[in-house]
Nucleic acid binder design. Sequence first.
DNA 1: ATAGGGTTAG
Length: 612
Amino acid sequence: MNASVSHYLHQLKLCAGSQTSSTAKKLHAQIIKAALHLCPPLPNTLLGVYGKCGLVGDALHLFDEMPHRDHVSWASLLTAHNQASLPHRTLSMFRFMYESDSLLPDHFVFASVVKACSSLGAIRQGKQVHARFMLSQFCEDDVVKSSLVDMYAKCGLPDNARAVFDSISKRSVVSWTALISGYARSGRKLDALEMFEKLPVKSLFSWTALISGLVQSGNGVDALYLFIEMRREGVDIVDPLVLSSTVGACANLAVLELGKQVHGLVIGLGYGSCLFISNTLVDMYAKCSDILAAKYIFGGMQQKDVVSWTSIIVGVAQHGRAEEALTLYDGMVGAGIKPNEVTFVGLIYACSHVGFVSKGRAIFRSMIEDYGIRPCLQHYTCFLDLLSRSGHLSEAWNVINSMPFEPDEPTWAALLSACKQHGDTQMGIRVADHLLSLNPEDPSSYILLSNVYAGAGMWENVAKVRKLMTAREVKKNPGYSSIDIGKESQVFYAGETSHPLKDEIFDLLKELDAEMRKRGYVPDSSFVLHDMEQQEKEKLLFWHSERLALAYGLLKAVPGTPIRIVKNLRVCGDCHTVLKFISSIVKRDIIVRDATRYHHFSKGECSCNDFW
DNA sequence: ATAGGGTTAG
């Protein structure tokens, strides 16, 4: 080989390692000047270097001008687009491989194309590529097979992933990791653990795959136990990816004390200023209802990206601070960060919280016109929520009928709470019927329907709904609330009477009840789904889990500190009223995270504006 | 010379 060719080859390799785009362009210019730009393998190497430096445009330009393109050129170009997160382009260009250069895919190309399918979740095309691969001369290639394992795993087909995995002759760590991650993220806990146990050598990579997969499938508790086990095994956390999943688990479970401990670990390991991790910490504190800590982390961040801004906007919006969310949005735009579709979910949500109808309409329009974002179903749902909360029921109905999506459960639920709020029983019943037909197994649909009837005083229908639930064997999930006192966590179930402090709790609730009635409280038993005497119903309400947790908190927590409660179901209307009364009687802030939102009770008011 | 696995916001 020509001495200068190998010189440039060496330089390009260095440049690929350091990923400095200016050097890539300089080297390209020098190569042209030296008239070596057609000497193989320089054109292909250059193509790869452009890809690694993130210069897809230059890569494509070079590719277009190459007189002789081979398999390596194609593989490099497709990989460049995968790396630039443009898997759509990877697939669309792949279609022209045969047409423009009469080339059939080789194993390198197959691997890139499969990866593109997996990041798009394009299972139909993925299966087609799989078939072509099986018919090709490369059908025994293990690298392509491991990319197929990953594709099926990511598309939620772990059994297909397993079938490919079993066909691999020499299984690499990569294929193991892909499969374990696939099982974990599909919620196949036992399969994931079984494969993990069989894994000959467990690296940080494999632990991360398992733990993050479990967090993604909502198995946060298992994920946290595995994280503890990983620490016990002495695995060196040389990069922080596993920490973001762990912080995420704390966020999903709303376990503030544990979250703080993991935060301490993050700082101890030296990742306190890592962008990714700070983003998850902002989210975690917001979800654990410590919005002050969330703002503190956000304020201290050296660099902030769209996720950082969106996390804090969504966080304050969920805590009912709409004006603050909108101010933050101005700050975001001012800082030159472009909002994305998630940001707009938060913003529309914020507007709907305080009934900023025209502001919300303007934001919805701006999203489409200024940022070219096509609204998805979730945007429509938030927007509907805004319209229906503020009483624009017919406009909401029009939107639901004209939007380009089939309404899903949250959509109907948004409309339904509005019907209830505005006493529109007829529409409420229609909506509840839709909801019920969409998900006849979900107890909350029945509760909502029953509440509509109860709100209208249609007691016979309330009874019918209850009978329907029995007939269909739909069981209401038992309600429970948890509360942290110091580092201890306590869980209370509705109606629980076996707690060691039950007498103290009962006495306190009795005392508060008397004081509330003096101030005008009348129990609203329409939320109780049973046929029984009024007094019996009130007794049931009295033992709702959030009240037990609250009383325990008042007895045990440091005086003056806010009481934080996490509930698995939605707070019932009567408890909501009670919590407002109690916040003003005991002059304490009470923060409840229920199944759908946050309630900050303070001085007799709630941040949700009595709408949830 | 080119390929495959683990990370954050709804």
